[in-house]
């Protein structure tokens, strides 16, 4: 089982400049946990202290928003999980 996590440009610095990472997992939550296990500095970028996703992130699975149950959303081999950041300043 391999899922491709596509990162927002803001996070490239945490994954040695890559724009996507292949991980294993049956849900978005498992995939992100696998990602964070490999790149620990991402944890503080993606998750709040209570383990929930940061408020300003959107998760898309195969191009569709996974809201509102992002972390439990199931994924299968070949799926794409995309992490989007909302830049809200102006």
């Amino acid at each position: 089982m391999s899922v491709r996590v596509v990162l927002h440009p803001m996070f490239y610095g945490h994954v040695n400049g890559k724009d996507s990472i292949e991980v294993e997992g049956k849900s978005v939550g498992e995939c992100l946990a696998a990602l964070v296990a490999r790149f620990p500095t991402l944890k503080g970028e993606l998750f709040r202290n209570d383990g929930k996703l940061k408020e300003y992130l959107e998760i898309y699975v195969n191009g569709k928003s996974a809201y509102p149950e992002e972390l439990t959303c199931t994924v299968t081999d070949g799926d794409e999980v995309r992490i989007i950041v909302f830049a809200a300043g102006g």
Partner: peptide
């Protein structure tokens, strides 16, 4: 929208493109 050195831009055309709510349903 901007944050630090990051920026984003999209053009929303009613009836044609996804709207802001489509793109950011969490809206926090």
């Amino acid at each position: 929208g901007i944050h630090g050195l990051i920026g984003e831009i999209t053009t929303i055309i009613p009836g044609k493109t996804p709207c802001f709510e489509c793109i950011f349903p969490r809206g926090a």
